[in-house]
């Protein structure tokens, strides 16, 4: 049986009368990359902050490494690397001095080789002052600080925010390396593609409630594809009447379909009718949510 690194029981946070999260029950196992997916304000950051004892839950309980987040916060945080979503740094320092300070405050030694390696990979000039950095470079400083301690658990709040696509790929590559190292990552994001790229399991949070947790491959296996097929001439009606396919729109020489299954059948039929071009549309987070909500009226797959 695998060990749970994070476990929450009916975790609820209210900010005064405003709901933060409601009855969140979550388990994250050792060595897995858990993606926490949800739109802004859904409760991702709130959940992560409770785990780090930035503030206590209103009700419920959270444990990390089997220890209570409120009672044993200091011991827990010795084993956590954290990248906050709203990153704020000491801007008068050079990046290298910031990493030295971070190491010093964590009571660690000998992290220089690793933070320098990470900075090089992310193309971060550590000799420059943080105040001179763009938002993306500041984010790189945060990423390096979170990873440099080689902590057993990494809590990353939207780690690729503000980074260019190439650097995003490097960050995801580092996440994969950490996973290969047997360490655990709790990774919040609102970008489906990066969740798909690195996560083993995903939790979807909406309006403070965890509406689904499942393996990433299962989630994407159920997903919809939306595609627009452009033909030489308009093909006859009803050619895409098949299981798992819905015709959404028929225009001049194009047909837009929603394809849940039977993609090979769609492609083969399209080819028989002289398809000229196919446009596929990235599925939005909202559409994934809608899929979940429509499947059962309560909207819960947990």
């Amino acid at each position: 049986m695998r060990e749970n690194v994070i476990e929450t029981q009916d975790l609820t946070v209210y900010y005064g009368k405003h709901r933060g999260i409601l009855d969140v029950n979550l388990t994250i196992e050792k060595g897995e990359v858990f993606g926490f997916l949800g739109p802004n304000g859904a409760g991702k950051t709130t959940t992560q902050r409770v785990l780090l004892d930035v503030f206590p839950p209103t009700t419920g309980k959270a444990t990390v490494f089997g220890l209570d987040c409120q009672k044993d916060g200091v011991e827990i945080r010795q084993h956590i690397g954290y990248l906050p979503g709203e990153l704020a740094l000491y801007s008068n320092m050079k990046a290298s001095d910031f990493f030295k300070m971070y190491e010093f405050l964590r009571g660690e030694n000998g992290t220089k080789d690793y933070w320098q390696e990470l900075a090089d990979r992310l193309d971060l000039d550590t000799s420059r002052k943080i105040s001179q950095f763009s938002r993306g470079n500041k984010q790189k400083v945060g990423v390096v600080a979170a990873f440099m301690s080689k902590a057993d658990l990494l809590i990353l709040d939207e780690p690729t925010g503000g980074l260019d696509p190439l650097v995003q790929q490097t960050v995801l590559e580092i996440v994969r390396e950490v996973k290969a190292d047997g360490r655990t990552i709790f990774f919040s994001s609102h970008i489906l593609s990066e969740i798909k790229a690195v996560c083993d399991r995903v939790g979807i949070i909406r309006d403070g409630q965890l509406v689904a947790t499942q393996r990433v491959e299962d989630m994407f296996a159920q997903r919809m594809n939306r595609m627009t097929l452009i033909f030489e001439g308009m093909p006859p009606a009803g050619i895409f009447k098949m299981d798992g396919v819905t015709e959404l729109e028929r225009a001049d020489k194009s047909i837009t379909l929603e394809v849940r299954e039977n993609l090979p059948g769609v492609l083969s039929t399209a080819a028989q009718h002289n398809v000229m071009d196919i446009e596929t549309h990235n599925i939005s987070l909202e559409e994934i949510f809608l899929t979940y909500y429509s499947k059962d009226n309560g909207g819960s797959h947990v």
């Binding site: 902050r49 780090l52 004892d53 930035v54 200091v74 945080r77 990153l87 704020a88 740094l89």
Partner: peptide, 14 residues
């Protein structure tokens, strides 16, 4: 308010 304290309180310091 500027967010730097969050970095500090999430270090292993009481």
């Amino acid at each position: 308010e500027d967010g730097r304290l969050e970095m500090l309180v999430t270090l292993p310091l009481p």
